[in-house]
Nucleic acid binder design. Structure first.
Lengths: 188, 188
DNA sequence: GTCTATAGGGCGATAGAC
DNA sequence: GTCTATCGCCCTATAGAC
């Protein structure tokens, strides 16, 4: 393969996902991923800070988009509703591109504790970003953190539902999930 | 130091905590921790599956205790209240022994993304255990998962508060935290 | 692009407790 | 003797330094 084939990053992601699915995360080396993508190991670490990051390349963009939607939210909304709305919109945007990969990605992450761990810190980072965005003009820091954490929990559940049935409407899944959380937290 | 000094595991934990505080997690090698504890690197890995685990040795016992308290809980309690009760009791038990280490441990974990990540997966595992315990006789799986996740969020916040003021009553912090979460999730 | 330190583990030998 | 904890040696892969 030539030295300057385009889209090295995407090729690396695709190669990694395929290999992880075939043989499991720990059984695949970075050198193998790089080889399959037609680049060197050095290039891999140029694009991703560590081996796990190859499956989370979309996360920063997603987080930015959530924060952006949140900034545009109606000030009259409650914090949690604003956060859920931002996650719903950003999720809908992103999921459209991920239909084919979502299930594989889910399986690979579920099969590896290391990837599960990395996924959790991405969600934690997302919650922190939402907290900051809410915090500035809407809520006390503590209340904002709880609203953000709850919204991310709702998102995680809805995202899991969606990967099991990618034909479902994401915003409906988010609303169901939110309703269920509210019942669980505030039983009457 | 002789080969059979007792309590190798505790010595390793103490050595690790001290060194991490002095120089930061990434700057300390497993070999150094082992040396300070008077054992070899190999022995370190006999006690802990990886470098991070040395700071989370108490987690399984805590989780077991939470599940135990949950099994003894009044069936009339709502899931989230039962979970918060179990976490409150297990937390109170455990925190009594950790007064001196809590602050150091907190600082060390906060200073290292890798340890933060590991802490998150421990909390995730705790939430999963609570979900299973609730699930069996009380709630739908989804509702149980939300109640468990919410209770763990409450616990995390209360634990953070407690490390900043170890004279506070832990159960009061838990109740405050729960009230705040409820307001954030169900604003009216 | 090359080099190196460190994480992490496999395996068998060994030192002590019982 | 058995059983368990520790150790020594050797190896690979990650990750970062140069």
């Amino acid at each position: 393969m030539g030295r300057w084939e385009p889209n090295a990053q995407e090729r690396l992601q695709h190669a990694a996902m395929t290999l992880f699915l075939e043989r499991g995360y720990t059984e695949v080396t970075v050198a193998e991923i790089a080889e399959r993508a037609g680049v060197t190991k050095r290039t891999f670490f140029n694009h991703f800070t560590d081996k796990r990051e190859v499956l989370f390349a979309g996360a920063p963009a997603f987080e930015d988009r959530v924060v952006q939607y949140l900034a545009e939210a109606d000030d009259g909304l409650d914090a949690i509703d604003a956060a859920v709305m931002a996650l719903t919109r950003a999720g809908t945007d992103l999921l459209a591109n991920y239909v084919e990969y979502a299930d594989v990605r889910r399986k690979v992450i579920a099969a590896s504790p290391e990837l599960h761990e990395r996924n959790l810190i991405k969600m934690s980072s997302l919650a922190a970003a939402i907290t900051r965005a809410l915090d500035t003009h809407r809520e006390s820091s503590r209340a904002a953190a709880f609203a953000a954490q709850a919204a991310v929990t709702v998102f995680t559940a809805a995202y899991d539902d969606w990967t099991e049935d990618t034909t479902a409407e994401f915003d409906a899944l988010m609303q169901e999930s939110l309703t269920c959380l509210r019942k669980a937290v505030h039983p009457i």
